[in-house]
């Protein structure tokens, strides 16, 4: 578990920029992740939202959960809209039309908006070097439209378009590694974050905002509705995802890897999957095979970290 002073939580900023009254499902850890992102970013922030859960829960007219300027255009293009906002502010500040000050520009989308339909837009915005932050809230399927599989859905997970059928059991492909794709863009900062580790989470969001140039954050976001997990278990599942190696926490700063909340001994993956209805059709062999692959990926991650240190 994240080592933090038990009273440190009181040091978090009190201000919320995603307000109560939003319409996320009971126990939505994605809404929590978004709340924490904006707690870390603070008031001087402008957000561009993709279509998805975090858009519809926060903006049904005539109410808004947002306390900061916020713009939704479409599903696939929030990164591009964000890059436009960043460019617009840059031009207007340079021309003296608006006061010069530090404004964080954040674009965000779900895993569908990031890994599938919007991958090109995210790639373009990151490649062009805009001083902005992109956050993928990854709940591992298209939850807003009714739990369809995305390329970020984990192997074997049952969704409404990868159901646990009699002959084909759930998702047939391994989760697409979007953070690694972003690392390949040679951007200054890429990190994975998980609201079960709020201090690591907030630190990374702040770093992403402060760093000059594009930053990409990939946020683990438990979805009780889509995963068939109990709403009160969202934070525990987040910890289990890290402890089983299913969602390693790491950051890549100017190409240098470092791993957080390092796992010395993996918790059995079964502890994680058994709490989720989407995995209930899995056999022990399938779980073990996935665990092996996760361990291999984790080992590779540690090697990258080691190589980063050797490069210093």
């Amino acid at each position: 578990m994240e080592k933090f002073n038990v009273f440190a939580s009181r040091l978090l900023p009190k201000e919320d920029y995603v307000c109560s009254g939003h319409r996320a499902c009971q126990g939505c850890a994605e809404a929590l992740a978004m709340r924490l992102v904006h707690k870390a970013l603070g008031r001087n922030t402008i957000a561009a939202s993709a279509t998805g859960c975090m858009e519809i829960i926060s903006s049904p007219y005539p109410e808004t959960a947002w306390n900061i300027p916020w713009l939704h255009v479409a599903f696939e293009n929030s990164a591009s809209v964000g890059s436009g906002i960043e460019s617009g502010l840059k031009a207007l500040m340079r021309k003296g039309r608006i006061p010069k000050r530090k404004i964080n520009v954040i674009a965000y989308g779900g895993d569908g908006a990031t890994a599938d339909i919007g991958l090109q837009w995210v790639s373009g915005a990151m490649e062009r070097g805009h001083n902005m932050l992109y956050v993928c809230y990854d709940n591992e399927a298209y939850m807003n439209t009714g739990i369809q599989r995305s390329s970020a859905t984990p192997l074997h997970a049952a969704t409404t378009t990868s159901p646990a059928g009699k002959t084909i059991g759930g998702q047939q492909t391994w989760k697409k590694n979007v953070p690694e794709i972003m690392v390949s863009h040679n951007i200054p900062y890429v990190a994975t974050i998980n609201p079960s580790y709020p201090f690591d989470f907030m630190r990374k969001v702040k770093k992403a905002a402060e760093i000059d140039g594009p930053a990409y954050l990939h946020a683990y976001s438990c979805c009780p509705t889509g995963w068939g997990s109990r709403p009160e278990l969202g934070i525990q599942l987040g910890r289990l995802a890290v402890e089983t190696g299913a969602f390693p926490l790491y950051e890549v700063e100017y190409g240098k890897y470092s791993v957080q909340e390092k796992v010395e001994e993996f918790r059995p993956l079964k502890d994680y999957v058994k709490l989720q209805r989407r995995f209930r059709h899995l056999t022990d062999e399938q779980i073990n095979a996935s665990q092996e692959r996760l361990k291999q990926e984790y080992a590779l991650l540690l090697k990258k970290e080691q190589m980063s240190k050797e490069g210093d």
């Binding site: 307000c19 109560s20 009254g21 939003h22 319409r23 926060s58 903006s59 007219y61 005539p62 109410e63 808004t64 959960a65 947002w66 306390n67 900061i68």
Partner: peptide, 14 residues
Amino acid sequence: CATLEPGSSKYQKT
């Protein structure tokens, strides 16, 4: 069709 009152989700008593 912009929403001008920030944080007006407070009217939604969830």
